[in-house]
Design a protein around this nucleic acid. Sequence first.
DNA 1: TATTGATCATAT
DNA 2: ATATGATCAATA
Length: 227
Amino acid sequence: MASGRPAPTSEAELVARAAALAGRTLGELAVELGVAVPPDLRRAKGFAGQLLERALGATAGSRAEPDFPALGVELKTIPVDERGRPCESTFVCTIDSVAIGAVEWERSLVRRKLLRVLWVPVEGSRALAVGARRLGAALLWSPSPAEEAALRFDWEELAGLIGRGDVEQVTGHLGRHLQVRPKAAHGRARRRALDPDGMSFAALPRGFYLRASFTAAILASHYVLPR
DNA sequence: TATTGATCATAT
DNA sequence: ATATGATCAATA
């Protein structure tokens, strides 16, 4: 990957850059950055996110850090329908099911990832060619006390189950706003986990996701569709 | 058709 | 192999 823009040095600069992208298409951005546009996202699921990383000067790559380390800001592109509502859930982080039982909410990866997020809406209809999809108005967000309390409630239930060795009992049906779903390269992937008796076994890797209803509420009071 | 479970690409 | 970026696609 070629390098993107230099990193922004303040939140204001980051927000200004993001605001300037509203209404632009992924195709226009790709041309400016010298990136090829895939025909669809089946084999390029991270395309929009990686394009925006470069357009905004995020730290590229797969380092376990916020996208903008100096600012402590996480970048999330979010696909939205024609009404501005999320098309998908939002991946937050993977789960270390062996360690999670010893972690409190305040130090959890979920909370740290969501402390400060730049949401960048992108038209997500599969009927739109990838290159024609427009960016919406970005929103720099931190959870309100009520939002954090709600996330904490779900996290404690889910992390509690996993910590007690019941990771195999946790399905995507649990959690009002936060849920646990598989997060793996393929169905044979395995991570070390503990059963209720403390015995180690190979489990399907899982991650925390925000339900679309939760992110819809975040975007609802701020988001404006591109026009 | 909304949601859950499964999967794909790239970088390190 | 595990982190990043997520969306696909089968199911209920």
